[in-house]
Structures are given as C-alpha cells and as structure tokens.
C-alpha cells in the first residue's frame, strides 16, 4: 500500500517536473520556447535572401561556416513586420532534426515553470498558427505563451526547408 502511494507520488512529481523556457518578445507579447531546443542566441546579422524561398523564410546566415535558414517569426505568428533594432535577436534552435534561426524582437530571460503552472491555450483558433501554442502560463501577472517549435512549421514545410 505504501509502495503504491510512493509510486503515485513519484508519478505526480514526474508530471509536475520543472522545465526551463527561454522567453522572447514579439509585438508586446512574451513567448517561451523549451530551453533544450535552443542552441544559442545571436545579435542580428545580415540575412541573405534566398530566391524562390517560401514566404516564411527570411533568408540564410553563415554561422561559423554552417548555413542556417532564418524564419520570419512575425509573419508566422500573423504579426506585422517591424524594423530591426538593437534588441533584435536571432535565436538558433533545433526542431524536427533541423537547425534553424528565428528572428525575434528581443530575448528576455530563462524561466522555470512547473507542469502544473501551464494552462491549455483557448481552443478557438482554426488558423495554422493556432496549432503551435503549447500552452500559456501566468507569471508575475504576465502571460507567457509557450510555443511548440516542432509545430512552428508543417511536416511539408519542414521538408521544404531541408531541401532549401
């Protein structure tokens, strides 16, 4: 009986594991991505456009000899584009076994969140962009929108990106 209780407690503890999220800002909202998928954060560098690339691709950068595709995150999130400034960053992430960069307004911090602190996002969206919200969390009276990077692009789009 005691063993069963321990197992349940361990299971509950496992469900409520603490995850770290890198937060960034886009158009006055704060988003979080799993720290395990973040490789590095770069200052803005020149992005070379790629002719014939999909609309969600801004271009490519040279990262220590490797070519990395940069995604237009604002466009992906259905936001208006904005000018690059001193706080603009390119976050290099790994998703779907590919390394890509996402352009964001700024990177804020790394936060620790328990599983129990994450709520489901309201399920009223029908657009593609509604799918890549993993959940939301209220932190210091600020809403953190957690993004599922694997769903940032569809399977087809990930394949297109690999062939770019």
């Amino acid at each position: 009986m005691a063993d069963a209780k321990n197992v349940a407690a361990v299971a509950a503890g496992k469900d409520d594991e603490v995850l770290q999220w890198v937060t960034f800002r886009l158009d006055n909202e704060t988003y979080g991505i799993n720290v395990m998928q973040v490789q590095e954060v770069l200052r803005y560098t020149e992005i070379a456009p790629v002719p014939g690339a999909p609309h969600y691709v801004l271009g490519i950068i040279n990262l220590r000899g490797n070519v990395v595709t940069v995604i237009d995150t604002r466009s992906r999130f259905g936001l208006m584009s904005s000018d690059v400034d001193d706080s603009t960053r390119i976050v290099i992430i790994e998703a779907e076994k590919q390394v890509i960069g996402i352009l964001v307004d700024s990177v804020a911090e790394v936060v620790y969140l328990r599983g129990s602190e994450i709520d489901n996002a309201p399920n009223v969206g029908t657009e593609e962009s509604a799918k890549f919200i993993q959940g939301v969390s209220n932190r210091d009276n600020e809403l953190l929108i957690l993004v599922d990077l694997d769903k940032l692009l569809s399977d087809e789009e990930w394949m297109d990106l690999a062939q770019l």
Binding site: E29, D119, P122, V124, G125, A130, K131, N138, E142, L143
Partner: peptide
C-alpha cells in the same frame, strides 16, 4: 487591464487577461 493577444485566434477573440491567477478569454 492587460489583454494578451494570442495568435491564430478569430477576430472576435480579443485575447487573454489574467484574473485571479487564471486566464480569462
């Protein structure tokens, strides 16, 4: 107070506001 816009939602969805440690749609 502060309504957070969430992407991919219909036009009639204004956003989320935190209220008593929960989210109001």
């Amino acid at each position: 107070e502060r309504v957070n816009h969430i992407m991919g939602r219909p036009e009639w969805y204004l956003g989320v506001q935190t209220y008593r440690e929960s989210q109001l749609n």
